Amino acid sequence: MGLAVRELRRRRGLTVRQLATQIGVSVGTVSAIENGHVGTSSERVVTLADALGVRADRLLVGIADPIRDERWGPAVAGAGREDPEDWRHYEPLELDPALRGALESFLEFGYHGSTMRGVAERAGLSVAGLYHYYSSKQQLLVTILDRTMEELQRRTTAAGTAATDPWTRFALLVECQALFHSHRRELGFIGATEMRSLARPARERIARLRRQEQATIDAEVLAACLAGAFGTPRPREAARAVVTMCTAIPQWYRHGGDSSPEQVADSYVDFALDLVQCDPSRRPQWE
């Protein structure tokens, strides 16, 4: 990991002193980390990753595994065989054994009820083997939520570029949210229930990304209202209600149930258009 820290620090044009100031440690501590002379706690790994602009798990794999400069790139769980332009297409969720074990444990027992030993058993690893890759439950949770937001943001961006007018973009963004929170209900459930378990600075970062998702839909509702296509007198409240409705899907949706994700998404787009008082007859010709 020390080599990875040094390489990323140099890529970002940071001195050892500047990085030390950012993460609140001494210059000697940063030097010791880069030279592999000191152990690094999970909390400090997360802090370092934030300062260097990468996910904590990418920092841990070290320089032998290519490190992405972009925090929110396409290298996300389940994305390996997917067309990045096809935001409606979902392959089965792919996670490494440790993350899979953590996800299953968090879903069953919650974050605070889970233990590293229990995660290791579900992952088919020894406890020592699990600690080799992930040094704490917190790091496992942060990695799961990072990957959740990466995939959601990638799909949101693709959906938003598939239309030229705000009312159509709004419908596509709602469809995207509903598809994600049903196809990826496990990730969505953890995102909805375990934000309170995140420590700083990861909590602020994930919360900021969630606000960005909300702001994307806020903007389209407001633009459609200004264009006369939506009649709601309270566009911000309506947009917030729409997103809350979609993020609640993991609370009740079950794979293999009465409705497919696509059927859920169709219904939720209708619900959302009713909520914003969409009147097709009022839609102007969008230039």
Rank of each mutant, 00 (worst) to 15 (best):
R254S: 10
T244D: 10
A272C: 01
S41F: 05
A56H: 00
D96S: 11
V38C: 07
V221G: 07
L273Q: 04
E43P: 01
E220A: 10
D258W: 10
Q18N: 01
V30I: 15
Q212E: 14
G28E: 12
G118N: 13
A219E: 10
R12C: 05
F271W: 02
A98Q: 06
L14V: 03
E70L: 07
E7Y: 03
V127N: 10
V38M: 08
A77F: 11
P66V: 05
L125N: 04
C176F: 01
G110L: 05
Y268V: 15
A79C: 11
E91C: 06
R203C: 02
R283V: 15
V25H: 04
L222Q: 12
A75T: 11
L209A: 09
A223L: 09
K137T: 02
Q214D: 08
V243M: 08
D270Q: 14
G53R: 05
I144Y: 01
V119L: 05
E175Q: 15
Y131K: 12
Y253R: 00
Y253E: 01
Q214F: 12
I23T: 04
V174P: 08
T164F: 09
T244N: 05
L103W: 02
G101M: 12
E34F: 09
G129Q: 08
R205M: 13
W286Q: 14
R169C: 13
L107D: 00
L172Q: 07
Y90K: 07
A227F: 01
G2W: 06
S136K: 08
S126A: 07
V61K: 02
H37F: 01
P92G: 11
E43G: 09
R155T: 06
R211H: 11
